[in-house]
């Protein structure tokens, strides 16, 4: 099977930086351990997705309603965790027809499956301020493995912000309508802002 995620070019330098950091005497407090704590994903976040289409362009959308929380373990980043729930009824797209189509039984089937959830199962540090998150994404009643990359954007006092990307195949969820006109891959591009609890 192909990799489920695309590593952004910039992400490729993180392992290098990380190994350089390992040479130096341990820093007193690096960004991620300083960030240790529990956070609620707040309403200033943005959860956008896109699906490429044949011949260029594609569908762009976002979810307006979501909730979730994450915990950052200061001692062992691998013990960190995140859960997030999306309410696909809140999907936004270019026009109402598209939104109705996405809500319908063809795609999210919001009448029968009002929630899409992601629960992390493993977090691995892949750079100075980047982590790879493995987990289980459940949509339309089907649970499948999924992977996202998170990069720290901002950390100040009680709030933290991550840029999170990931590519998910939609066919395992029974959402393969429109392939191959529309790509089987949904690209997520999210900014998750957490407020310390």
């Amino acid at each position: 099977m192909r990799d489920l995620f695309r590593v952004r070019p910039a992400a490729a330098i993180w392992p290098v930086l990380a190994s350089l950091a390992a040479w130096a005497p341990p820093a007193s407090a690096d960004a991620l351990s300083e960030a240790a704590g529990r956070y609620r994903i707040d309403k200033t976040s943005s959860i956008r997705f896109s699906v490429d289409q044949a011949g260029g362009g594609g569908i762009r959308g976002s979810f307006g309603a979501y909730s979730g929380a994450f915990r950052i373990d200061g001692q062992d980043i691998a013990k960190s965790s995140v859960t997030i729930t999306l309410y696909p009824k809140s999907v936004h797209a270019n026009e109402a027809r598209m939104e109705n189509f996405l809500r319908s039984d063809a795609v999210f089937d919001v009448a029968n499956h009002p929630e899409i959830t992601f629960r992390s199962t493993a977090v691995k540090r892949i750079g100075e301020d980047a982590a790879r998150i493995d987990g289980v994404l459940t949509a339309r009643g089907k649970a499948r493995k999924a992977q996202f990359d998170a990069t720290l954007r901002r950390l100040s006092g009680g709030s933290i912000s991550f840029h999170v990307t990931g590519s998910i195949y939609r066919s395992p969820y029974g959402m393969d309508v429109g392939t191959p006109i529309y790509s089987n891959v949904v690209q997520f591009d999210m900014v998750l802002n957490g407020t310390r609890r």
């Binding site: 189509f101 319908s104 039984d105 063809a106 795609v107 309508v177």
Partner: peptide, 11 residues
């Protein structure tokens, strides 16, 4: 009825 079927039929 089904939107997926409708999409396919239009294609």
């Amino acid at each position: 009825k089904g939107m997926a079927l409708q999409f396919e039929l239009i294609q």
